[in-house]
């Protein structure tokens, strides 16, 4: 029973524990782990969190269930909204975003947490893979207090030494002052979360460092599946598993359709 949870459930619970009561959590489309994590955190320890989905701001901690949307563009999440950013400027109050938290994916992610949603290939006019575009990630990553890189695959094509293009600036070419030098007020990426492991960023260089590996995964496997040299501590713990209570809330009150269990 001890390991009777899926990787997506493990990542959801890990992320949920990261989120603090009173924070404003902004989730875009096509990020099921982040969507589940903010709901779980809201129900377990965040009655004063605000959840922002596609411009709709809500507090729904009183609900028995906060199910996941049926599909990425499901605008019916607005049934929970208390207000919308869509009537004004979505980015009117970036000065207040220090307690905002955001989640970001990428076609590529590099050793310093820069992310790429633009595309892959040396010639921008003839990309080998054209990505979806930057959405709002350049502005969000510039201003939010911190953000999490959440990946649904871990391989050397995604985790690269240097992104072909950068759509959201993480730590640039490294160094604790990389963001300050550019005048970027937000705190930058805190962790990079993958199906194999959790990375954090070394304090001085801001290069990705292996923080923990998931149950059954060796640091060597992570090294093989990563396209850059990882800062490797002498000992790497196993990612702490979900508790029975966390899984109970997640399965019965958030992921009621069981999408994260596969």
């Amino acid at each position: 029973m001890e390991n009777d949870y899926s990787i997506s459930e493990l990542l959801t619970v890990f992320l949920a524990r990261e989120l603090k009561d009173g924070e404003v959590l902004r989730v875009g489309v096509a990020m099921p782990v982040a969507e589940a994590a903010v709901r779980l955190a809201h129900l377990t320890h965040g009655p004063n969190m605000d959840l922002v989905f596609l411009g709709a701001r809500m507090n729904v901690a009183h609900l028995e269930t906060i199910p996941m949307p049926a599909f990425g563009w499901d605008r019916r999440v607005v049934r929970w909204a208390e207000s919308f950013s869509d009537t004004g400027h979505r980015f009117d109050r970036v000065k207040d975003w220090n307690n905002h938290v955001f989640f970001i994916g990428g076609v590529q992610v590099d050793a310093y947490g820069n992310t790429n949603l633009i595309g892959v290939g040396p010639d921008y006019r003839r990309l080998k893979f054209r990505g979806p575009g930057s959405v709002g990630t350049p502005t969000l990553s510039t201003h939010v207090g911190r953000y999490y890189i959440v990946l649904n695959s871990h391989n050397p094509r995604v985790l690269v030494e240097k992104c072909d293009y950068v759509s959201a600036f993480g730590w640039g070419t490294g160094g604790a002052d990389a963001r300050r030098k550019l005048g970027l007020p937000g705190g930058g990426p805190r962790f990079c979360i993958t199906p194999l492991c959790i990375f954090d960023f070394a304090e001085d260089t801001k290069r990705m460092r292996l923080r923990s590996v998931h149950h059954g995964i060796s640091p060597e496997r992570v090294r093989q599946e990563t396209g850059f040299e990882i800062v490797m501590p002498s000992s790497v713990p196993t990612t702490e598993p979900p508790t029975a209570d966390e899984l109970q809330v997640l399965r019965s009150r958030v992921d009621t359709a069981g999408r994260l269990r596969v």
Binding site: S134, P138, T142, Y165, V166, S167
Partner: peptide
């Protein structure tokens, strides 16, 4: 003026 995008590839591409 806009700040989001400073440090990214957007002004290059």
């Amino acid at each position: 003026p806009w700040r989001g995008g400073v440090g990214t590839s957007l002004p290059e591409v």
